[in-house]
Design a protein around this nucleic acid. Structure first.
Lengths: 348, 348
DNA sequence: TTGTAAGCGTTATCAG
DNA sequence: CTGATAACGCTTACAA
């Protein structure tokens, strides 16, 4: 592969001049500039990102740490981040933590040694994380937390209005006449799960409906979790008439559990999710959900990160917490309790 | 951040010795070894991946180029790749090409300057691609094509039995009594789309059913594409009784088109997809599909790549073409033509 | 077994 | 405006 020396020789100039031309770091006379550019073109020269990074103490990579690409909510986020990063000349290094603290830490330690320009992280644990994240900042990388963050985080973050979204979901169910409303939560050490739970409770409280312990099931943010905890809920003597699942994957598990028990959704049980994945409208029944702007979450995170890295006024500014809105999407998986749906055949 | 010099000073040894301890590249006396290790621990030292890569002419990154994480088939592949890479100490750099040749090339050019150990690519174009890929190999990176590859590619690849999968889908439809079977294809410059089309035609031919041009719609591998071309098919005077969509996203679009025209699936039109995404069983109606082993595709690709990089016997071996099997998954979206489904209410 | 030093491909400083 | 030259942090002959 050609390097700067080759270019310099071919163009008959010094190394420094080549560098200056490539980086516009000093005025170079037009004839020399041209010769350099021609050589670059002729040899298909691309500067070594490694050497450059080593020298500059910073690369054009952005580390992105997420729990699991396989959860359909995250790809949209990743895509938003990737697009914005790419448009600005940055590259994304994707890391799956698989919800494991150990994996998360290992990824971070490794990532740091590449001197990325920044780090975007959807954390799945909060133990020694802050410490590790601190050393990213010390090494000059900008850090943005996405979707969730440690309690005491003072830096940049982008999240969604979890509490509000959950609140409105519950409010809508109540408005339909539901009183026995259950909630399947994500792992409660995750702030977003907590916030959604808080929103759920707020909704019930406001309507004067007592919060039953049995109706709150701590689960995992996946289909299996939703399935298992929905089964448990549906087997209660005092079965809920509506279930709010804290994400769509769990809502899907809930639908499966409802089928399993030969119940019907929404006639016997209403279900509402959170995320509003693309497939919700195609489901049986179409799943009501709280929409989260995944793509925007990712692209906003990268934008904030790059501003902090490149914009002088922002570099030293205090941490920004950006909160994006959520939106209730009503679909056929919710109905009044014990409703016979007018004009519609029961779905299977 | 601490570097090797710090460790050397702290342990009272030379730079070279530290390096030897860290890489096990030479026998170092136990006492020195211990002192080095202690210093490493005390300072939380991590070698700079940039410096190391620059010196070794190779990093522990694997570039992964895919069309779009947002297509739910790819995350499984990415996840399989990520897991296997991580387990072997490698990191994945993810690049979305958005099905654009330009983006693809730009990603590749940039990627190469990081001297990745390898490249896994699901190509979305084939123009100057081979050329660029060649320079990866010259720079010492192993390259594995995934899911599709250029005609003349002689290196490693992992694909699935596209032709066979499509063939069996069509065969099944025919067996149910269908004669008017349409096919919505992906972009035909993509080999996998071609193969699936060939499998479709093979199935029809074998049954002596003529292949109608009107029944083959060249589309794009997304929901909108499926929707539009399904609409066109469903408006034909001689409407097909079954539609084979070359991926699940297009099959979903097809279901939407069917609803739009107030037809019913499967009573009026049977639909079968390709991919077998996780959500298929929850759809309305549950979507029949050809299963592709996404995760395995990704993990196999990384495995092949690492073998070529690290295993002496493999390094110089001729390119391997691994083909993974597909599997027909029957679900309620297919039925005999004009069937009144016994005991079931028509779905909506 | 351990230390020394060259060099990987850049950038940045400093003379000229 | 241009050219030497010293880092950046590491690996790897080679010398001691």
């Amino acid at each position: 592969m050609p390097n700067m020396k080759h270019i310099a020789k071919m163009a008959g100039v010094s190394l420094g001049t080549v560098s200056h031309v490539i980086n516009n770091s000093a005025r170079v006379s037009e004839p020399l500039r041209q010769r350099v550019l021609e050589a670059v073109d002729a040899l298909h020269y691309q500067p070594s990102a490694l050497a450059r990074g080593l020298r500059r103490d910073k690369t054009n990579m952005i580390g992105m740490v997420i729990p699991d690409v396989t959860n359909p909510f995250f790809p949209a986020v990743v895509r938003g981040a990737e697009d914005t990063a790419f448009a600005n000349g940055y590259r994304l290094v994707l890391c799956n933590t698989d919800n494991s603290h150990a994996k998360e830490m290992e990824h971070l330690e490794q990532l740091r040694t590449y001197l990325p320009a920044g780090l975007i992280i959807i954390p799945s644990s909060f133990g020694k994380l802050s410490e590790e994240v601190e050393s990213f900042r010390r090494s000059g990388a900008a850090v943005v937390f996405l979707d969730r963050m440690p309690r005491n985080w003072k830096g940049d973050s982008v999240t969604v209005s979890n509490n509000d979204g959950a609140f409105r979901a519950v409010q809508y169910l109540i408005q339909l006449g539901h009183k026995r409303i259950a909630c399947i939560t994500g792992p409660l050490h995750l702030p977003n799960a907590q916030e959604r739970l808080a929103g759920y409770k707020r909704g019930l409280k406001l309507a004067g409906i007592p919060i039953l312990e049995d109706y709150v099931r701590k689960s995992t943010f996946d289909r299996v979790g939703g399935y298992n905890d929905a089964l448990a809920l549906l087997r209660l003597r005092n079965r809920p008439t509506a279930i709010f699942a804290q994400n769509d994957l769990m809502a899907m598990g809930t639908l499966l559990a409802i089928r399993e028990l030969k119940l019907r959704c929404p006639q016997d049980v209403s279900v509402i999710g959170f995320d509003d994945l693309d497939v919700t409208e195609l489901m049986d029944p179409p799943l009501a959900s709280i929409r989260q702007p995944g793509y925007q979450l990712g692209s906003t995170a990268v934008q904030m990160l790059l501003d902090r890295v490149n914009v002088d006024e922002v570099r030293a500014a205090p941490g920004q917490h950006r909160v994006l809105g959520t939106e209730l999407r009503i679909r056929e998986s919710v109905a009044p309790p014990n409703a016979t749906i007018g004009g519609k055949q029961p779905t299977r």
